[in-house]
Design a protein around this nucleic acid. Structure first.
Length: 306
RNA sequence: GGUACCAUAGCUCAGUAGGUAGAGCAACGGACUGAAAAUCCGUGUGUCCUUGGUUCGAUCCCGAGUGGUACCA
């Protein structure tokens, strides 16, 4: 019998946690989180991880499984998920995946090209080039190492250029030679659902949730993390704005407003990402019964797609 | 009730010696292959309060109205 992965994505604060839990409960299965920040156990309030009650209701994977000091990336997530699914599908015919990190979800659904992990020293070297020589220097290096990628990459985006150079240095091969963009077949069926609601409502949720996080003690969480604020994991909405407040760059009210604005912008970027994949069925988070039907493979009747 | 000032983008405001307008913030759209809640790119979205008048032409000048603010009563 064919196994099925039900992917439920959506912008931050849309209500994914509740939906995923209800669907997973109805199907008596477990949840895989695809959220690049909820993995860090030190970041709980600011990443809105499911509460203890929710975690007790349905077994969740990839929540609080890492430390902010750990190195982790999409490819590792892909592999970890595939291994986990091998195990879960022995027990369950259907597994639910939910989260807001579109790249992570896609890595599991479609696969991602392999290339060697880059040594820390090489990454530091390239980062140093950017800091001391600037982006134009990076562009010249990339043009030399990998003219093909140079012609395609966003030359304004230093991260993209740096990534490519790092791989070139690590392997002695052009970065573009690793890119196949091949869709990797998976030994299970994938059903994709994307949640959305009127923008105004989404923004109300986001604005309200920022206040709730502050009430729950986000500032205290951030204060504990302050000494490590330069770690990548902490370059995150909700944390960076409060670090800036602690540095005296603006007052607390301003910091909270910036968290709200930056979360809104993040939500828009997520929506743009998900919209590109036409396989997603867009649904309102309140239409859980329909989602359970889809998740169970029962497509009959009217579905409240939006 | 009287006098003065104001009315332009979602908000705060600038401006046009009369030729249908622009900043900041907010907002909107897009890209994305191992740091992705990251990173990067693009876009003014407007009955210039309403209505008469002067004018080839009014957001701008004049009158009236409406709404607001301040002061005097």
């Amino acid at each position: 019998m064919s196994k099925r992965l039900v992917v439920i994505v959506g912008p931050t604060a849309i209500g994914k946690t509740r939906v995923a839990i209800e669907v997973a409960e109805a199907l008596h299965t477990e949840i895989i989180s695809c959220d690049s920040r909820q993995m860090y156990r030190e970041m709980r309030i600011g990443t809105a991880v499911p509460c203890a009650e929710e975690l007790a209701a349905v077994k969740h994977h990839f929540i609080g499984n890492l430390s902010i000091f750990d190195y982790y990336n999409v490819s590792m997530f892909e592999q970890d998920c595939l291994h986990l699914l091998d195990r879960l599908f022995l027990e369950y015919p259907v597994v639910v995946m939910t989260g807001g990190s579109g790249l992570y979800a896609d890595a599991l659904c479609n696969g991602i090209d392999d290339f060697p992990t880059v040594d820390t020293e090489i990454r530091q070297t390239v980062t140093g080039w950017f800091q001391t020589e600037g982006i134009e220097y990076l562009r010249r290096q990339l043009k030399m190492f990998d003219p093909e990628h140079y012609s395609k990459v966003d030359l304004q985006n230093h991260k993209r250029i740096m990534k490519a150079i790092e791989v070139c240095l690590q392997t002695g091969r052009p970065y573009s030679s690793f890119l196949t963009a091949q869709h990797r077949p998976r030994p299970f069926e994938i059903v994709k659902i994307a949640l959305n609601r009127p923008r105004e409502e989404l923004y109300e949720n986001i604005n309200r949730r920022a206040g709730i996080m502050m009430d729950e003690g986000l500032l205290e969480e951030v204060k504990e993390l302050y000494p490590n604020r330069h770690l990548n994991a902490l370059n995150t909405v909700g944390y960076k704005e409060l670090f800036a407040y602690m540095d005296g760059q603006h007052d607390l009210d301003t910091a909270v407003e910036l968290i709200r604005r930056n979360t809104r912008r993040y939500a828009k970027r997520q929506l743009t990402w998900f919209a590109r994949d036409k396989a997603y069925q867009w649904m309102h988070p309140d239409h859980i019964d329909d989602m359970i039907k889809i998740a169970s493979g029962k497509y009959g009747g009217h579905l409240s797609t939006i």
